[in-house]
Amino acid sequence: MTLNKVAVDKTANERMDNQAELTFSLNERKLTNSKSKANYWIAFAVGVGLLLPFAANTYQIHILNLVVLYIMLAIGLNLTMGYCGQLNLAHVAFYAAGAYTSAILTTTYQFNFWLALPISILVSVFLGVLIGLPSLRVRTHYLAIATLGLSIAVNETIVNLDTITGGPVGITGIPKPSFFGILLITEYSYYYLVFAFTLLLFLFSRLVVKHGIGRSFRAVRDDHIAAQSLGINVAKQQILAFAFSGLFAGVGGVLYAHMLSYVSPDTFTFNEMMFILTIVVIGGLGNIYGSIAGAVILLILREWLLQFENWQQVLYGAMIVALVVFMPGGLVSIKSLFQRRKKAGSS
């Protein structure tokens, strides 16, 4: 149907408009339906998450803490990589910045945790913006190795500034935070702190990806040239994406440091970076729920593989290859794979 024709044939116009409106609102309703369904699922998951510690032994609660922490780290990386399409291999450097700033402030300078937290976040966000700057000039492989190089530089800087950071040995004796007078000394109580922050950041990321920022990010990812020509300030979006990476990793770093009461440069390595990246990719790029699933599955997998002793890493590597080759869309693609099958089967 053409616009000029439609203008001539007024009744047809109206008829078609009504039809369009009908399907439109029907779809809209379908969408709102699935939205509220998603809300129920989230509420359910939060309930399960809150109850899990009661069923966990001391080893399991440790793993649970890590799972929830890695969910936060993965979602943050997913925002930059999966949504905004920026090859950010410096996430782990922002993680280190958060952890070390808080560790130094609370030990050497005896800051309160709740004061050290925002300062540490600021530091890691600032580092995120700084390391994000090359993205304004370089792309793809070039950006990947630039951020990786800077991330290695950050790690070496931590090692070299040994008077402040404890060098290769790291910092010990990082105090546990307290919450309204309750000292979160056990991993059970600490779990709720990590859980609260992850939930908060998850809800924030959900808000972001569903609205303006998320759309701008994906526009930049899908076609930065078109995005520019449509008035989107691509540079600003890219820097914002790196700032988010700094925010999520920074909070994660602080929580990590106070969870173990100990930080060392050995944590914030290339391998760690690749582990977080694997969670994001295996879960599904550009899908925050995928990152949650990815963190759960990869951490459980990592623990399960421990029984194979020397061979665990070999199996782990092989599994990554297999997953990437056979399921390139990540875990979230299982759903669409299934749907396509169903369609093919019915027709």
């Binding site: 303006g212 526009a219 076609d223 995005a227 449509l230 550009g286």
Partner: peptide, 17 residues
């Protein structure tokens, strides 16, 4: 086009600006 976005999202991404 913003290939991996829906039609509505393509338009909204521009309006967001």
């Amino acid at each position: 086009l913003f290939k991996q976005m829906t039609v509505l999202e393509n338009i909204c991404a521009v309006l967001d600006e």
